[in-house]
Protein backbone atom coordinates (compact mmCIF):
# COMPACT_ATOMS: atom_id res chain seq x y z
CA UNK A 1 0.00 0.00 0.00
CA UNK A 2 1.30 3.44 -0.87
CA UNK A 3 1.60 5.94 1.96
CA UNK A 4 -0.57 8.33 -0.04
CA UNK A 5 -3.35 5.73 -0.17
CA UNK A 6 -3.02 5.08 3.53
CA UNK A 7 -3.31 8.79 4.20
CA UNK A 8 -6.19 9.33 1.78
CA UNK A 9 -8.79 9.61 4.57
CA UNK A 10 -7.91 12.77 6.46
CA UNK A 11 -9.05 11.63 9.90
CA UNK A 12 -7.19 8.76 11.56
CA UNK A 13 -8.63 7.58 14.86
CA UNK A 14 -6.13 5.66 16.97
CA UNK A 15 -7.91 3.38 19.45
CA UNK A 16 -6.89 0.91 22.14
CA UNK A 17 -6.94 -0.06 25.81
CA UNK A 18 -5.10 2.18 28.29
CA UNK A 19 -1.35 1.62 28.38
CA UNK A 20 -0.93 -0.07 24.98
CA UNK A 21 0.85 2.87 23.39
CA UNK A 22 -1.88 4.82 21.57
CA UNK A 23 -0.05 8.09 22.04
CA UNK A 24 3.22 6.61 20.80
CA UNK A 25 1.56 5.18 17.70
CA UNK A 26 -0.28 8.48 17.12
CA UNK A 27 3.06 10.29 17.27
CA UNK A 28 4.67 7.81 14.87
CA UNK A 29 1.77 8.14 12.42
CA UNK A 30 2.13 11.90 12.63
CA UNK A 31 5.78 11.57 11.59
CA UNK A 32 4.84 9.26 8.73
CA UNK A 33 2.40 11.90 7.48
CA UNK A 34 4.80 14.79 8.01
CA UNK A 35 7.60 13.00 6.14
CA UNK A 36 5.20 12.49 3.23
CA UNK A 37 4.77 16.24 3.16
CA UNK A 38 1.39 16.41 4.86
CA UNK A 39 0.58 19.04 7.44
CA UNK A 40 -0.62 16.94 10.34
CA UNK A 41 -2.36 17.66 13.62
CA UNK A 42 -2.65 15.22 16.51
CA UNK A 43 -5.71 15.75 18.68
CA UNK A 44 -5.31 14.33 22.16
CA UNK A 45 -8.61 13.91 23.94
CA UNK A 46 -8.72 15.04 27.55
CA UNK A 47 -5.16 13.81 28.11
CA UNK A 48 -2.28 14.82 30.25
CA UNK A 49 -0.25 15.98 27.29
CA UNK A 50 2.20 13.13 26.93
CA UNK A 51 2.46 13.64 23.18
CA UNK A 52 4.03 17.11 23.22
CA UNK A 53 6.57 15.80 25.75
CA UNK A 54 7.71 13.23 23.19
CA UNK A 55 8.60 16.16 20.97
CA UNK A 56 10.17 18.09 23.81
CA UNK A 57 7.36 20.65 23.86
CA UNK A 58 5.46 21.81 26.90
CA UNK A 59 1.81 21.31 27.77
CA UNK A 60 -0.58 21.35 24.82
CA UNK A 61 -3.47 23.74 24.69
CA UNK A 62 -6.83 23.83 23.00
CA UNK A 63 -5.23 25.96 20.32
CA UNK A 64 -3.09 23.82 17.95
CA UNK A 65 0.63 24.45 18.24
CA UNK A 66 3.49 23.24 16.07
CA UNK A 67 5.69 20.67 17.82
CA UNK A 68 8.13 20.04 15.02
CA UNK A 69 8.07 21.00 11.34
CA UNK A 70 4.70 19.97 9.95
CA UNK A 71 3.56 18.24 13.16
CA UNK A 72 0.95 20.07 15.21
CA UNK A 73 -0.99 19.05 18.30
CA UNK A 74 -3.84 20.18 20.46
CA UNK A 75 -5.54 18.89 23.57
CA UNK A 76 -9.31 18.79 23.27
CA UNK A 77 -10.96 19.37 26.64
CA UNK A 78 -14.77 19.15 26.69
CA UNK A 79 -15.03 22.40 28.66
CA UNK A 80 -13.16 24.28 25.95
CA UNK A 81 -15.14 22.57 23.22
CA UNK A 82 -18.38 23.57 24.94
CA UNK A 83 -17.23 27.16 25.21
CA UNK A 84 -16.27 27.20 21.54
CA UNK A 85 -19.57 25.62 20.54
CA UNK A 86 -21.56 28.19 22.49
CA UNK A 87 -19.52 30.96 20.98
CA UNK A 88 -19.80 29.75 17.40
CA UNK A 89 -23.45 28.66 17.58
CA UNK A 90 -24.96 31.22 19.89
CA UNK A 91 -22.42 34.02 19.77
CA UNK A 92 -22.18 33.80 23.49
CA UNK A 93 -18.71 34.84 24.31
CA UNK A 94 -18.21 34.73 28.05
CA UNK A 95 -21.89 35.05 28.94
CA UNK A 96 -21.00 34.06 32.40
CA UNK A 97 -18.20 32.20 34.08
CA UNK A 98 -20.84 29.73 35.14
CA UNK A 99 -21.24 28.43 31.63
CA UNK A 100 -17.79 26.91 31.51
CA UNK A 101 -17.50 25.99 35.18
CA UNK A 102 -16.98 22.34 36.07
CA UNK A 103 -20.45 22.04 37.56
CA UNK A 104 -22.05 23.42 34.45
CA UNK A 105 -20.11 21.12 32.13
CA UNK A 106 -20.88 18.22 34.47
CA UNK A 107 -24.52 19.22 34.44
CA UNK A 108 -24.82 19.52 30.69
CA UNK A 109 -22.93 16.33 30.02
CA UNK A 110 -24.94 14.42 32.62
CA UNK A 111 -28.23 15.76 31.39
CA UNK A 112 -27.28 14.61 27.92
CA UNK A 113 -24.66 11.89 28.17
CA UNK A 114 -22.67 11.72 25.03
CA UNK A 115 -22.75 15.46 24.61
CA UNK A 116 -19.20 15.69 25.89
CA UNK A 117 -18.16 13.27 23.15
CA UNK A 118 -20.19 15.17 20.57
CA UNK A 119 -18.43 18.37 21.56
CA UNK A 120 -15.04 16.72 21.20
CA UNK A 121 -15.97 15.17 17.86
CA UNK A 122 -17.39 18.53 16.87
CA UNK A 123 -13.95 20.02 17.39
CA UNK A 124 -12.48 17.35 15.10
CA UNK A 125 -15.12 18.30 12.57
CA UNK A 126 -14.15 21.98 12.85
CA UNK A 127 -10.53 20.99 12.23
CA UNK A 128 -11.48 18.87 9.25
CA UNK A 129 -13.66 21.64 7.86
CA UNK A 130 -10.77 24.00 8.41
CA UNK A 131 -12.68 26.28 10.70
CA UNK A 132 -11.30 27.80 13.84
CA UNK A 133 -12.29 30.70 16.08
CA UNK A 134 -11.45 34.11 14.70
CA UNK A 135 -11.50 32.83 11.14
CA UNK A 136 -8.07 31.18 11.43
CA UNK A 137 -7.25 28.52 8.88
CA UNK A 138 -4.83 25.76 9.72
CA UNK A 139 -5.18 23.74 6.50
CA UNK A 140 -4.34 20.41 8.10
CA UNK A 141 -4.01 17.59 5.57
CA UNK A 142 -4.18 14.87 8.19
CA UNK A 143 -5.85 14.80 11.61
CA UNK A 144 -4.84 12.05 14.01
CA UNK A 145 -7.20 11.47 16.92
CA UNK A 146 -5.57 9.91 19.98
CA UNK A 147 -8.87 8.41 21.14
CA UNK A 148 -10.02 7.75 24.71
CA UNK A 149 -9.24 4.30 26.16
CA UNK A 150 -11.13 1.39 24.63
CA UNK A 151 -13.89 1.10 27.23
CA UNK A 152 -14.95 4.64 26.54
CA UNK A 153 -14.02 4.58 22.87
CA UNK A 154 -17.16 2.87 21.63
CA UNK A 155 -19.47 5.24 23.49
CA UNK A 156 -17.30 8.09 22.25
CA UNK A 157 -17.76 7.17 18.60
CA UNK A 158 -21.40 6.12 19.08
CA UNK A 159 -22.38 9.43 20.68
CA UNK A 160 -23.57 11.16 17.50
CA UNK A 161 -25.91 8.25 16.70
CA UNK A 162 -27.35 8.38 20.19
CA UNK A 163 -27.93 12.08 19.86
CA UNK A 164 -29.43 11.79 16.38
CA UNK A 165 -31.91 9.24 17.77
CA UNK A 166 -32.79 11.34 20.79
CA UNK A 167 -33.21 14.63 18.96
CA UNK A 168 -35.40 14.31 15.91
CA UNK A 169 -35.29 17.83 14.50
CA UNK A 170 -33.44 21.11 14.70
CA UNK A 171 -29.84 22.25 14.51
CA UNK A 172 -28.54 19.71 17.00
CA UNK A 173 -30.01 16.87 14.95
CA UNK A 174 -28.39 18.30 11.83
CA UNK A 175 -25.02 18.59 13.54
CA UNK A 176 -25.22 15.03 14.83
CA UNK A 177 -25.88 13.85 11.28
CA UNK A 178 -22.80 15.72 10.06
CA UNK A 179 -20.67 13.92 12.61
CA UNK A 180 -22.11 10.51 11.71
CA UNK A 181 -21.33 11.16 8.06
CA UNK A 182 -17.80 12.23 8.97
CA UNK A 183 -17.15 9.09 11.01
CA UNK A 184 -18.74 6.53 8.74
CA UNK A 185 -17.51 7.81 5.40
CA UNK A 186 -14.38 5.73 4.65
CA UNK A 187 -13.09 8.49 2.43
CA UNK A 188 -13.02 10.83 5.43
CA UNK A 189 -12.29 8.76 8.56
CA UNK A 190 -10.51 5.54 9.37
CA UNK A 191 -9.85 3.86 12.72
CA UNK A 192 -6.65 2.01 13.63
CA UNK A 193 -6.49 -0.29 16.63
CA UNK A 194 -3.43 -0.53 18.86
CA UNK A 195 -2.79 -3.54 21.06
CA UNK A 196 -0.05 -5.34 22.95
CA UNK A 197 0.70 -9.04 22.46
CA UNK A 198 -0.89 -9.82 25.84
CA UNK A 199 -4.09 -11.59 26.77
CA UNK A 200 -6.44 -8.79 27.82
CA UNK A 201 -5.38 -6.21 25.22
CA UNK A 202 -5.81 -8.78 22.41
CA UNK A 203 -9.23 -9.87 23.67
CA UNK A 204 -10.38 -6.26 23.95
CA UNK A 205 -9.01 -5.35 20.54
CA UNK A 206 -10.94 -8.14 18.85
CA UNK A 207 -14.08 -7.06 20.68
CA UNK A 208 -13.58 -3.42 19.72
CA UNK A 209 -12.97 -4.35 16.10
CA UNK A 210 -16.20 -6.32 16.00
CA UNK A 211 -18.13 -3.42 17.50
CA UNK A 212 -16.66 -0.95 15.04
CA UNK A 213 -17.95 -3.17 12.25
CA UNK A 214 -21.32 -4.16 13.67
CA UNK A 215 -22.46 -1.19 15.69
CA UNK A 216 -20.64 1.85 14.43
CA UNK A 217 -19.86 1.31 10.77
CA UNK A 218 -16.55 3.13 11.19
CA UNK A 219 -14.06 1.70 8.73
CA UNK A 220 -10.85 0.17 10.03
CA UNK A 221 -7.34 0.47 8.68
CA UNK A 222 -4.69 -1.61 10.38
CA UNK A 223 -4.16 -3.17 13.78
CA UNK A 224 -0.85 -2.25 15.39
CA UNK A 225 0.65 -4.93 17.63
CA UNK A 226 2.98 -2.86 19.76
CA UNK A 227 6.07 -3.85 21.74
CA UNK A 228 6.82 -7.09 19.91
CA UNK A 229 10.21 -8.62 20.71
CA UNK A 230 11.92 -8.79 17.33
CA UNK A 231 15.07 -10.83 17.57
CA UNK A 232 13.89 -14.14 18.86
CA UNK A 233 16.73 -16.57 19.35
CA UNK A 234 17.11 -19.79 17.40
CA UNK A 235 17.86 -23.29 18.61
CA UNK A 236 21.44 -22.69 17.52
CA UNK A 237 21.77 -19.78 19.94
CA UNK A 238 20.41 -21.90 22.74
CA UNK A 239 22.70 -24.80 21.83
CA UNK A 240 25.72 -22.50 21.93
CA UNK A 241 24.76 -21.38 25.43
CA UNK A 242 25.19 -24.94 26.66
CA UNK A 243 28.80 -24.95 25.47
CA UNK A 244 30.72 -22.41 27.57
CA UNK A 245 34.03 -23.44 26.04
CA UNK A 246 32.85 -22.59 22.50
CA UNK A 247 31.48 -19.27 23.75
CA UNK A 248 34.74 -18.50 25.47
CA UNK A 249 36.85 -19.25 22.43
CA UNK A 250 34.67 -16.98 20.25
CA UNK A 251 34.94 -14.23 22.85
CA UNK A 252 38.71 -14.71 23.10
CA UNK A 253 39.03 -14.22 19.35
CA UNK A 254 37.96 -10.58 19.74
CA UNK A 255 39.64 -10.04 23.08
CA UNK A 256 36.48 -10.19 25.19
CA UNK A 257 36.78 -11.75 28.63
CA UNK A 258 33.72 -13.62 29.88
CA UNK A 259 33.50 -14.79 33.48
CA UNK A 260 30.91 -16.97 35.20
CA UNK A 261 28.63 -14.01 35.87
CA UNK A 262 28.74 -13.04 32.21
CA UNK A 263 27.71 -16.54 31.12
CA UNK A 264 24.84 -16.39 33.59
CA UNK A 265 23.78 -13.04 32.18
CA UNK A 266 23.84 -14.31 28.58
CA UNK A 267 21.81 -17.31 29.68
CA UNK A 268 19.43 -15.39 31.90
CA UNK A 269 18.51 -12.80 29.29
CA UNK A 270 18.29 -15.39 26.52
CA UNK A 271 15.82 -17.41 28.55
CA UNK A 272 13.89 -14.29 29.59
CA UNK A 273 13.57 -13.27 25.94
CA UNK A 274 12.49 -16.78 24.98
CA UNK A 275 9.85 -16.93 27.71
CA UNK A 276 8.41 -13.50 26.91
CA UNK A 277 8.54 -14.14 23.15
CA UNK A 278 6.68 -17.41 23.59
CA UNK A 279 3.92 -15.62 25.52
CA UNK A 280 3.77 -12.92 22.85
CA UNK A 281 3.68 -15.49 20.05
CA UNK A 282 0.69 -17.18 21.65
CA UNK A 283 -1.28 -13.94 21.80
CA UNK A 284 -0.17 -12.85 18.33
CA UNK A 285 -1.53 -16.15 16.99
CA UNK A 286 -4.88 -15.47 18.63
CA UNK A 287 -4.86 -11.99 17.16
CA UNK A 288 -3.88 -13.18 13.69
CA UNK A 289 -6.52 -15.89 13.73
CA UNK A 290 -9.42 -13.58 14.52
CA UNK A 291 -8.37 -10.17 13.24
CA UNK A 292 -10.10 -9.09 10.08
CA UNK A 293 -7.66 -6.28 9.24
CA UNK A 294 -3.94 -6.36 8.44
CA UNK A 295 -1.67 -6.53 11.47
CA UNK A 296 1.39 -4.30 11.63
CA UNK A 297 3.90 -5.45 14.24
CA UNK A 298 5.88 -2.72 15.92
CA UNK A 299 9.15 -3.61 17.64
CA UNK A 300 9.73 -3.56 21.36
CA UNK A 301 12.15 -0.68 21.84
CA UNK A 302 15.01 -1.02 24.27
CA UNK A 303 15.84 2.68 24.07
CA UNK A 304 16.28 4.91 27.07
CA UNK A 305 12.59 5.62 27.53
CA UNK A 306 10.39 6.91 24.75
CA UNK A 307 12.06 9.76 22.99
CA UNK A 308 11.92 11.26 19.54
CA UNK A 309 14.48 8.81 18.06
CA UNK A 310 12.23 5.95 19.21
CA UNK A 311 9.27 7.55 17.49
CA UNK A 312 11.39 7.97 14.36
CA UNK A 313 12.22 4.25 14.49
CA UNK A 314 8.54 3.36 14.79
CA UNK A 315 7.70 5.69 11.92
CA UNK A 316 10.35 3.95 9.76
CA UNK A 317 8.85 0.63 10.71
CA UNK A 318 5.30 1.73 9.89
CA UNK A 319 6.38 3.15 6.52
CA UNK A 320 8.11 -0.11 5.62
CA UNK A 321 5.29 -2.37 6.76
CA UNK A 322 2.59 -0.31 5.06
CA UNK A 323 4.40 -0.58 1.77
CA UNK A 324 4.44 -4.36 2.16
CA UNK A 325 0.66 -4.51 2.62
Amino acid sequence: MEIADFLAPRIHIVCGKGGVGKTTVSAALALVAARAGYKVCVAEIDHKGSLPRLFGASEPSYEPSELSPGVWALNVMPEDALAEYLEVQYHMKRVSKVLTSTHFTDYITTAAPGLKDILVLGKIWYLEQNRAPGGRRYDFDTIIVDAPAAGHMITFLAAPMGLADAVQVGPVKRQADWLIEMLTNPARSIAHLVTLPEEMPVAETLETSQKLDDELGVSQGVTFANGVYQDSLSDEHLALLTKPSSLQSCADSVGLRLDKEDFDALNGYASFLEARSAIQAKHLRVLAKSATRPIVRLPHLFGSGLTLPDIETLADEIEGKLQEL
Partner: peptide
Protein backbone atom coordinates in the same frame (compact mmCIF):
# COMPACT_ATOMS: atom_id res chain seq x y z
CA UNK B 1 33.97 -8.40 14.62
CA UNK B 2 32.06 -11.35 16.05
CA UNK B 3 29.19 -10.70 13.72
CA UNK B 4 31.56 -10.82 10.77
CA UNK B 5 32.62 -14.32 11.79
CA UNK B 6 30.75 -17.29 10.47
CA UNK B 7 28.76 -19.56 12.82
CA UNK B 8 29.27 -19.32 16.56
CA UNK B 9 30.77 -15.84 16.47
CA UNK B 10 27.66 -14.35 14.89
CA UNK B 11 25.49 -16.26 17.36
CA UNK B 12 27.48 -14.88 20.28
CA UNK B 13 27.08 -11.38 18.82
CA UNK B 14 23.29 -11.83 18.94
CA UNK B 15 23.45 -13.05 22.53
CA UNK B 16 25.63 -10.08 23.53
CA UNK B 17 23.24 -7.68 21.79
CA UNK B 18 20.34 -9.22 23.66
CA UNK B 19 22.18 -8.90 26.96
CA UNK B 20 23.06 -5.27 26.40
CA UNK B 21 19.52 -4.42 25.28
CA UNK B 22 18.05 -5.81 28.50
CA UNK B 23 20.80 -4.22 30.58
CA UNK B 24 19.77 -0.85 29.14
CA UNK B 25 16.24 -1.50 30.32
Amino acid sequence: KLRAQEGDGALLADLLDNESAFMRV
